[in-house]
Design a protein around this nucleic acid. Structure first.
Lengths: 336, 336
DNA sequence: CTGAAAGCGCTTACAG
DNA sequence: CTGAAAGCGCTTACAG
């Protein structure tokens, strides 16, 4: 069908070996020969077959990337960061949506292995044991993005989730809030949610505030999820003065429910979110949140993977990227 | 390194041909032999090498997907639709961000060809001539998603953009608006924008309303873009009573600017958007818009590509998916 | 029902 | 500086 190296060789009156050498810029080719080959390539419109090359080289220049759901705005920027770096170094990415389901994660891991991916980027809530086993027995390089590894065994790029949660909770407390609700992930296995919970609790402890389990609710990581959780929270006789929601979608849903129920934000309740997703700044009220450098997380992860493949171990195993408290209009000071 | 078919063959005391046959479920293998092979596969932990298979079969079971920017919410759902269908039929996708730049589109097209993609899904503003040439000379199956082909030469899945634009404009007119602004794409080559412009003009004509070029502005397809365009529009002595923005981000930015300038939406100006992106329903005011079935566009595109590869030509070359006018709170009737 | 062998399109050690 | 040949890990027509 298409023209192959053999055709170019015939056209240029050289061997396939020579064509391959000019293709790969191996220096020991005579300039004149090289020119003849280049001309032949031009004339025949030859395009290398990366599959054949991969088979021989045992390297595909492709990464597998696992992501919960590409249609959620959060993850999307991470992927863009990955792709931009891959682009520079001539890698491509195969994308899979796992919905954070362990069974899909495992299935796709196998697919990545069959397709001989050179490395894998895991984005999700945390590695489950089955996946860990597969990774270990396959020995592919893996980098975790946006979540760090419990054991510290894998490379990772993430914010310090515990500290980030501590910071935003502290901000609330400094504004006089002592009764704070916490909307978390219904998925108990979420390592990120666990870390944020720890930071929340640490902040309360530090300021001698008692935790109130009634105000700690778990639900879906979505606008609707936050809306429903607030619906539930509002059934309490007494309400908290503030809320920490584990992402901006939840925060937003909570705010909408409060409004629908006749409350005002931040006048009647202060709300903070997480992640600073693209829309948060345009909302009314603007949502105070903790930003993660999503794009950078993707870009750094990709660079790490490439470094590992080049046998130059990256300096750090677990890269911590900075988080940032973004103060907007959804928190009110109630200090007298 | 890893175990290969040869190792399994030795382990099972058969030839590689036989192993390959059981791997591919070719029926003419003796049941006992088959069992022996299956056991050997189990024991050795053999995983097929898809690259080697692809080389031999001249088929990679991967699609290349070109998309302007994966970090924009609009495109993200299309990709999810594609991926879900691919998943069912054992295809994978290689993802590329083109930023709608022809040079990147061409570059990635070459990458897809080198990686021997079985088909290509193009999502963008419209095919430019250079790309068309490449596609034609390569003869890969291509499906256009969310945009149709000017010439009708390629397979495509999209809404009827002209009609959609007509419908939403008509809705405004029926609500008494006769002075309507139009925020469009700064990229003149956008086929989608051209189509929507046609529909807009057709609606005005039908109701004998004169076009007012001063109210037709072009800018960036973003919240900021809409904000800036409204800033510009507001310099006019006389203002329109309504605005058609070519996406919801623009509509949203325009609304924010209006509010910042002391106007109310829809009281002082009605605004409609396009695409119904996830957030539009949660905004205040809720944005009236035209919904496209993004997920379906992706899913149908992927199915089309698979059909083409199976030599069963899809029924239609250009599939038109339904658009839907979603009425919320950003339009006010000014009919007396 | 099974095996030996050719071949998919490349790269590269080896020899000259 | 260049070529013949082996081999990457598979599949499949051919022969038995």
């Amino acid at each position: 069908m298409n023209v192959k190296i053999k055709d170019v060789a015939r056209e240029a009156n050289v061997s396939v070996a020579t064509v391959s050498r000019v293709l790969n810029n191996i220096p020991l080719v005579n300039d004149e020969t090289k020119k003849r080959v280049l001309d032949a390539i031009e004339r025949t419109g030859y395009k290398p077959n990366a599959i054949a090359r991969s088979l021989k080289m045992q390297k595909t220049n492709t990464f597998g990337i696992m992501i919960p759901d590409i249609s959620l705005p959060y993850y999307t920027q991470v992927v863009r960061g990955v792709e931009d770096v891959c682009n520079i170094y001539d890698y491509n990415i195969i994308l899979c949506n796992t919905d954070s389901e362990p069974s899909k994660e495992e299935k796709y891991f196998d697919v990545f292995m069959e397709k001989q991916c050179d490395g894998i980027l895991y984005i999700g809530k945390g590695l489950k044991q089955n996946l860990v086993n597969k990774i270990d027995s396959s020995r592919v390089p893996v980098v975790l993005g946006a979540v760090s590894d419990v054991m510290g065994r894998y490379h990772s790029v993430a914010i310090n989730n515990e500290q980030a949660s501590f910071d935003v909770t502290k901000y609330l407390i400094e504004n006089g809030h002592e009764s704070i609700a916490f909307f978390s992930d219904e998925d108990e296995a979420s390592f990120v949610a666990q870390e944020r919970k720890k930071g929340f609790v640490r902040a309360l402890k530090k300021y001698n505030i008692k935790e109130n389990p009634i105000f700690e609710l778990k639900g879906k990581y979505s606008i609707k999820g936050g809306y429903d959780l607030m619906d539930e929270l509002l059934t309490n006789a007494e309400l908290p003065t503030a809320l920490v929601a584990l992402n901006d979608e939840m925060a937003l849903g909570a705010i909408r429910k409060l409004e629908d129920a006749g409350y005002k934000v931040p006048d009647d309740m202060s709300v903070v979110g997480f992640n600073n997703f693209q829309i948060s700044e345009w909302f009314k009220p603007g949502i105070t949140t903790v930003a993660q450098p999503m794009y950078d997380i993707g870009a750094i992860s990709a660079r790490m993977l490439i470094k590992i493949l080049n046998n130059s171990k990256p300096e750090e195993k677990a890269v911590t990227v900075p988080h940032e408290l973004i103060i907007r209009d959804s928190v009110r000071s109630i200090k007298e």
